[in-house]
């Protein structure tokens, strides 16, 4: 899926929804923003300055943390290892420096603090991720954005595989990301989530930006109209 001239602005501390039909380019947009796939043109600016984001590592360094749909956790490794994957804490001695020996004690402490802070009730942090429910897994994935995301959390359909009650929990967690100082970009198919949890919404259609609206100024029918193309968009930044 290709994207063409899509502009995206994210305000400090807001939750921006990205909606659009299947194949509209939502996931492509996210991956382009985080350097997971190469961009052919366009720029990314941070606080008004150009930012060089060409790989997932660059994005993380810039304080952008992403939760990819279906690609959030490795089933075969523990919750601890999943949270710290790619950013493991090493022992602060020669073992850590020379052999890269992990500091389990410290990671253990940080994870338990994090889960307490976010009210995530998982104590069994050495069990494989596979052993947990969809809701618990998503909570763990979202918790990573609080642990490491200094500025922006990007979420690709955080409730896609969840039941009603679990979705509710996940969305409450999304809302609390704001309280932890994060701005959020969230892809979703759920209009209710857009209307209840987001500040602004941008609509993509066939790889193009159709409309950007304040959530307080739209209703579900308008959004559906914009997504399906029965309503004309204006593609002006709202």
């Amino acid at each position: 899926m290709a994207l063409d001239a899509v502009d995206l602005t994210l305000e400090e501390g807001e939750v921006l929804a990205v909606v659009g039909d299947n194949g509209a380019g939502k996931s492509t947009l996210i991956k382009a923003l985080t350097g997971a796939i190469p961009r052919t043109s366009g720029t990314i600016q941070f606080d008004g300055k150009d930012a060089q984001i060409d790989s997932p590592t660059d994005a993380k360094a810039a304080g952008i943390e992403t939760v990819y749909q279906d690609l959030a956790l490795v089933n075969e490794i523990s919750i601890t290892q999943n949270v710290f994957l790619g950013r493991e804490i090493l022992r602060d001695d020669w073992l850590g420096r020379i052999f890269g020996v992990l500091d389990f004690k410290k990671m253990d402490r940080e994870i338990r603090d994090l889960f307490t802070k976010l009210d995530i009730r998982i104590t069994d942090i050495y069990r494989d991720a596979q052993a947990f429910s969809g809701g618990q897994r998503q909570a763990v994935a979202l918790s990573k954005t609080v642990m490491f995301g200094k500025r922006i959390a990007i979420l690709d359909e955080p409730t896609a595989a969840l039941g009603v009650r679990e979705s509710q929990m996940a969305m409450d967690l999304v809302r609390s990301l704001k309280d932890h100082g994060l701005s959020v970009i969230m892809i979703t198919h759920n209009m209710q989530h857009v209307l209840n949890y987001c500040d602004r919404v941008m609509v993509l259609r066939l790889g193009k930006l159709t409309a950007v609206r304040k959530v307080s100024e739209v209703d579900g029918d308008t959004l559906v109209g914009l997504i399906t193309g029965t309503l004309e968009g204006d593609a002006k930044d709202g």
Partner: peptide, 16 residues
């Protein structure tokens, strides 16, 4: 090694 063997793409996206 466990992460890469479990899901290479997740590991890559996590910065490994």
């Amino acid at each position: 090694a466990f992460a890469i063997g479990g899901n290479e793409e997740v590991a890559r996206l996590a910065g490994v």
